[in-house]
Design a protein around this nucleic acid. Structure first.
Lengths: 208, 208
DNA sequence: TGGTGTGAACCGATTCACAGCA
DNA sequence: TGCTGTGAATCGGTTCACACCA
């Protein structure tokens, strides 16, 4: 049980886990690092390096026992339990996120939404109730939610982040295209969709 | 005009560009690598290294002339012109993307949307007309669009990608959580929102 | 003095090469 | 023979240290 997994290693681990999920019903008992690598677009060596972080799961000459590997990865990503998530910002993006099937598929469940717009508060979107952002702390107090998705305009992002942190949220997925600050002990992941377009445009204009 | 910019370097360059935008009206004529670095969360050295890729823009003892640096970065990211983008998949996410202000802000404009659902075809969402995906090639033939945003379910992602490629699209921003294959000359950028949650969950459970 | 530009050193991640086990 | 596990080599990106310029 080493502790030597790069940031992109986590990414790959999640991809391995998903791939195993997708071939759940397959008859083969084993999968090789080569096949797993091909499936997600990485080298066999890379796969083996990543996987040895969690002990010697593979068997020389045979490969990785699918059931066993699946169990290990599922445990790492908590696939066996439902993970509660809250959403702040019920605009277009927020609503799309509530409806997004991908979260449910991986056992993430949005259990509450928050907004500051009176017209939205009290509404129910796909079973998710929208609360007043002012009641954030009170509402999530009894809920076991450590992760928040932030889909508010850039102008109020930092303010809401501070509220989340003081309400006990431990990890934030931020969609606001702005640099926000969080204390060291809070995990932050930014998704900036328009900057991805910038990158594509750059690659388009600067071929190499 | 070196050609030595890492993949994350492009990212940072876009951030520099945005920061300059945000202080457009500032009186200072110059900005130092230190200040620019602080603003986006990187070191001054990193900023200087990144910027020298595009020639000696800075002035020793003074810093970078904002106007000049802004012009260089704006040119790199085509901030001066409107860039046409098409969207495929008008579900919840697709609609949210059409409404997303961030794209407009950076001069990306969605000029056409496509879906295979009869009920959606012909509708107009925020000025964007939804076409039949079957008509993809014919519709975009006269349009100057090289970038596509893909927001379809995983099951049809690869099929649509192939259509996009054969219709002349050169870069794709893919929101479908699945590994898709494109020819070498096509630029691809994946955004997988649920895998970001996986990562956050991992960081939460494996503090280091 | 204050700040850029840049070769050299460093460091972390990936790849190579191969020992060892079924 | 086939495939894992892993030290060693390599690669690329970041940081350091400093020459140089206003």
């Amino acid at each position: 049980m080493e502790r030597k997994l790069s940031i992109s290693g986590i990414y790959r681990l999640a991809l391995y886990s998903r791939h195993l999920y997708s071939l759940n019903k397959r008859r083969d008992e084993y999968i090789s690092s080569q096949e797993l690598g091909d499936a997600i677009g990485h080298t066999a060596t890379q796969v083996r390096k990543d996987l040895t972080c969690y002990g010697s799961i593979g068997e020389p000459g045979k490969g990785y026992k699918i059931e066993k590997l699946n169990a290990v990865l599922s445990s790492i990503f908590g696939r066996d339990k439902i993970k509660n998530v809250i959403l702040v910002g019920v605009g277009n993006l927020g609503m799309a996120l509530i409806a997004y099937k991908g979260f449910k598929l991986h056992q993430f469940r949005i259990i509450a939404a928050f907004d500051k717009d009176i017209r939205k508060i009290g509404r129910r979107i796909e079973d998710v109730l929208v609360y007043d952002i002012q009641d954030l702390k009170a509402v999530i107090d009894g809920m076991d939610a450590q992760i928040a998705i932030l889909a508010v305009p850039p102008s109020s992002a930092q303010e809401v982040i501070d509220m989340l942190v003081s309400s006990g949220i431990k990890a934030i997925l931020n969609f606001a295209p702005i640099k926000v600050n969080v204390p060291d002990n809070i995990k932050l992941q930014n998704v900036d969709m328009s900057i991805e377009l910038d990158r594509l445009y750059y690659l388009l204009k600067n071929p190499f």
